[in-house]
């Protein structure tokens, strides 16, 4: 008997009185709070915190099912989940710091470099062996013989 169980034995009594479905319900509720945080907040830091909440919800469910089946593997999986959470936080916060250095902001709406890049006014695209003004002329004045000859 471990020290913790020895200390808590008079409080807890024998066996497990907690209904497993309550444990699962707590996990589901926590997960939905995490979804709320990820979906409704624009602060990347808070979004990472919400992901932590969701990982914890998964841990709660793992511990609950571990109790239900009297199988210790569920609690071992909690450790793997914690390892993944630690790795995710380390890399996520590193990305956050890189984004902050770049944009001076941790708002998710400001980090759209992969979606839309502001190059300023676009330079004209020059194809190899083709004068840059050619395509322009072709559309503006198609009847001009010089432009038609150049296109051929």
């Amino acid at each position: 008997m471990t020290l913790a169980s020895a200390l808590l034995a008079p409080v807890l009594g024998a066996g497990l009185a907690i209904p497993i479905e309550w444990v699962i319900g707590l996990g589901l509720a926590l997960f939905s709070v995490g979804i709320l945080g990820v979906a409704c907040r624009r602060n990347i830091l808070i979004m990472l915190l919400s992901v932590e909440i969701m990982l914890n919800a998964a841990n709660v469910v793992l511990v609950g099912f571990s109790r239900m089946h009297s199988e210790i593997s569920g609690q071992v999986f909690v450790f793997f989940s914690m390892t993944v959470a630690a790795a995710e936080v380390a890399v996520g916060l590193a990305i956050l710091i890189a984004v902050y250095r770049l944009r001076r902001s941790i708002d998710a709406d400001d980090t759209t470099q992969l979606r839309e890049i502001d190059y300023g006014p676009l330079p004209p695209i020059k194809l190899e062996g083709e004068p840059s003004h050619h395509a322009h002329d072709d559309h503006d004045d198609a009847a001009e013989p010089v432009g038609a000859a150049g296109g051929a």
């Binding site: 169980s5 511990v63 909690v78 450790f79």
Partner: peptide
């Protein structure tokens, strides 16, 4: 909650 569920090490 884990303590009450007797998952002391967790």
């Amino acid at each position: 909650g884990y303590v009450v569920l007797e998952a002391y090490f967790v």
